[in-house]
């Protein structure tokens, strides 16, 4: 018997894994071109410049053809606002959490200090505790803190500290830092100290050594960490739900709100765009990393 022949089970299992991973996404994308408004049944593609079936029998012209729901989406100002919020939060929280997480990883890797194992362990806690617990915790913290601060400084009206973009960003940084630290730490594990010693030996001080040698060498790890933080921030719902305020609605929160009212293929169109963006970003970063590795 050929020892390299694979058991047929392996093929079946592989197909099943990919099916369950991608079938829902494919259905979701398909439904964003649905001619039916209710999104329960697939009523065929929207005909180009043809009739659009509304509910049961209503027929409407669509100037966008099959991309009707995408056009609807682009006219939706609420979605635009939510997308802007989501991206603002994701970029700021990724940037800050990547810096903090990388510094933490370097400190843990390099130095021996008191409470080292404690601080290392405490990094894992936000990863393992349920998000909802963390969300409630952060909410309680903010409301207590803001209550005290508003009282102490006599802040009134618009100047009162309240939940909003700022609180969402802070909470996103809080849950992203441990992930960044773990990813960067894994990269640092195989980092030979003699690279830094060589740089210093050749006349580079600590700062130059970091920017010219250490950072470029750990950059792929830092980028992976940043990518993880970015995607975590993009699709976070639970913690955002607790820490968001008026005017700080993010896409997941917005979609959730839509679903409570009516499910239209607009939600699917939104999700399709979202998936396309995330896939592009991931793909670009992967390319960047594989070039780094060469």
């Amino acid at each position: 018997m050929n020892p390299h022949r694979r058991h047929p089970f392996i093929r079946v299992a592989t197909i099943l894994v990919y099916f369950f991973l991608y079938a829902p996404i494919l259905v979701l994308v398909l439904y964003s071109f649905n001619a039916s408004r209710t999104n329960i049944l697939f009523a065929g593609f929207i005909p180009s410049f043809g009739a659009l079936q509304m509910g049961g029998s209503t027929v409407v012209q669509s100037p966008c053809g099959p991309f009707h729901w995408f056009c609807e989406l682009s006219r939706n100002r609420e979605v635009g606002l939510a997308a802007r919020n989501t991206l603002t939060i994701a970029f700021i929280s990724t940037f800050i959490s990547t810096i903090i997480g990388t510094m933490a990883a370097l400190a843990i890797q390099r130095y021996n200090f008191r409470l080292k194992s404690f601080s290392q362990l405490s990094l894992y806690v936000p990863i393992v505790i349920p998000e909802i617990v963390m969300g409630i915790g952060i909410l309680t913290l903010f409301s207590q803190l803001f209550g005290i601060l508003n009282g102490a400084f006599g802040l009134e009206g618009d100047s009162r500290l309240s939940l909003g973009l700022g609180t969402v960003i802070v909470s996103h940084i809080a849950f992203s830092v441990p992930f960044v630290t773990l990813v960067v730490q894994a990269r640092l594990q195989g980092f030979d100290k003699s690279f830094e010693e060589a740089a210093m030996d050749l006349g580079a001080n600590e700062l130059i050594t970091f920017w010219r040698v250490t950072f470029p060498m750990i950059l792929p790890g830092v980028l992976s960490g940043a990518l993880l933080a970015f995607t975590l921030s993009l699709d976070d719902f639970v913690i955002t739900f607790f820490t968001t305020g008026p005017g700080a609605t993010t896409l997941p929160i917005y979609v959730y709100g839509l679903l409570r009212r009516i499910i239209t293929p607009q939600v699917n169109a939104l999700s399709t765009v979202w998936i396309a963006i995330v896939l592009t970003v991931v793909f670009l970063l992967q390319r960047l990393q594989s070039r780094e590795a060469k």
Partner: peptide, 18 residues
């Protein structure tokens, strides 16, 4: 090290890979 008039050849070479 960066202020000493000596230079080192490392066992692992420690060449900057990038």
């Amino acid at each position: 090290p960066f202020q000493r008039p000596v230079n080192t050849v490392f066992q692992s070479y420690a060449l900057f890979q990038h």
